[in-house]
Write a protein that binds this DNA or RNA. Structure first.
Length: 420
RNA sequence: GUGGGUGUAGCUCAGCUAGGUAGAGCGCCAGGUUGUGGCCCUGGUGGCCGUGGGUUCGAUCCCCAUCACCCACCCCA
């Protein structure tokens, strides 16, 4: 048998319903903040990601799905979407259009990493980006939008972690200070941190190794190194968040792995998942456009990893996304089928989710089937009912049933439980 | 890429450390008579024991290899 390839999976009902639900809520909430959907290709020139995400990052150096096109062009399946959105902005000269551009996207991304709980090689993200401005209110708006999104999904318990990692003006000085502080104690740091000291000093800051903590606590804070512009931006953002009652934890040790981030970074975590507790992350990337060879275009965005997100949601709200049959139409006697089918059509036209069997079943069997598919109601259409224009509508949960004429039945449909 | 774990019925697993070609629960199907589900009872269906080699008279069980999945690390969100 041919099976799914490693790190990919089929998303089956009811989980697929949960994905669809989470996506529909995102569309609805983001729309209220005036975001439009953008759909970019799932594959791009590999160079796009090498230049934006960073040549030296693991994502590009060993986790990207790259392949050569027939003409020799190096292509890659997108490992994330921010670079593509900025590319699209530049390619279509959107900088010439008035105002800011607010986009959201959703779809599959690809990374060739070893699969793990909630992590796949084809994974799904929902993200949003605002391009064309760097007002701190934009940062606040994006953060507000994503918390509103969580609220709409019924996720109340989460922490917003906030930091600023400066920009190309001020970060080098901080990195230098960090190296200076770490050098004397480097023998005391864990193996990973000793390596990071060379490869990516920033990441020492979010080392989880217990023995490193005392030293890390002594290291300088990025916030003390922000230049005037970055500092002012961050202060203003914090003031706005405070003003709107959006509580956050100042987390100077939270850094980003991707090269393009500047200034604001944020992350939302939830205790519901244990160690891998991050639900989403985002930040500002004011230099990304230029890294891609474009004019200066400021931007900020975030991305939610849906696979893990859905995992959390299914734990706290198991029924979310379920959409069972609302009306099961059971018919009795060979002459009843056409009328039963006609009623089914009419019910469907009013938006009710209906199912009708094509082979005649004993009523007992029909009810049993309806029960197994969690049907809310069963409509019984026998030859007697047709003759009397009086159909039996059975409430499966309550076990009660009532007689209704065709017009009464159709009038009742809007009150059936279930979607819409 | 590294380390550990697991692969037996549709699902969750037992059996394997006394090697003799398999069990439970759930599910599924059919009944418990005539047009009323869920519960209960009865019967039934169902497995090349991941795959390929080896040892053996004989292997689900022992050995080797391989593949897949899971967990963790690395990394990242």
């Amino acid at each position: 048998m041919i099976k799914t390839i490693r790190g990919t999976r089929d998303i089956l009902p009811p989980e697929s319903g949960l994905f669809a639900y989470v996506e529909s809520v995102a569309r609805e909430v983001f729309r209220r903040f005036n975001f439009d959907e953008i759909r970019t290709p799932v594959f791009e020139k590999a160079e796009l990601f090498a230049r934006s995400v960073g040549e030296e990052t693991d994502i590009v150096s060993k986790e990207m799905y790259t392949f050569t096109d027939r003409d020799g062009t190096a292509l890659a399946l997108r490992p994330e979407a921010t670079a593509s959105v900025v590319r699209a902005f530049l390619e279509h000269q959107m900088g010439n259009e008035p105002g800011l551009k607010r986009f959201y996207y959703l779809g599959p991304m690809f990374r060739r990493e070893r699969p793990q709980k909630g992590r796949y090689r084809q994974f799904f993200q929902i993200g949003a980006e605002v391009l064309g401005g760097d007002h701190p209110a934009l940062d606040a708006e994006v953060i507000e939008m994503v918390t509103e999104y969580l609220r709409c999904l019924g996720i109340q318990e989460f922490s917003l972690l906030l930091n600023s990692i400066g920009d190309r003006q001020c970060r080098p000085a901080f990195l230098q200070a960090l190296r200076v502080a770490a050098e004397p104690v480097k023998e005391k740091l864990c193996e990973n941190c000793r390596r990071r000291l060379v490869t990516n000093p920033l990441r020492i800051l979010d080392c989880k190794e217990e023995s490193c903590q005392p030293y890390i606590d002594q290291f300088p804070s990025i916030l003390d190194f922000l230049c005037a512009a970055c500092g002012a931006h961050f202060e203003k953002l914090r003031a706005l968040l405070d003003e709107r009652g959006l509580r956050y934890q100042l987390t100077p040790r939270m850094v980003r792995g991707l090269d393009y981030y500047t200034r604001t970074t944020f992350e939302i975590t939830s205790d519901l998942l244990g160690a891998q507790n991050s639900l989403l992350g985002g930040g500002r990337y004011d230099g990304l456009s230029e890294m891609l060879g474009g004019p200066p275009v400021k931007g900020i965005g975030f991305a939610i990893g849906l696979d893990r997100f859905v995992l959390v949601l299914s734990q706290i709200r198991p029924a979310l996304g379920e959409d069972p049959v609302q009306l099961f139409v059971a018919w009795l006697g060979p002459k009843a089928f056409s009328k039963a089918y006609e009623l089914t059509q009419k019910c469907r036209q009013t938006g009710v989710r209906c199912v009708i069997e094509f082979e005649e079943l004993k009523l007992k069997k029909a009810l049993s089937n309806a029960d197994r598919m969690k049907a809310g109601h069963v409509l019984i259409v026998g030859e007697d009912e047709i003759a009397r224009n009086s159909f039996q509508l059975k409430d499966m949960k309550a076990g009660s049933q009532e007689s209704l004429s065709e017009s009464e039945l159709l009038a009742r449909l809007s009150s059936l439980p279930g979607r819409l």
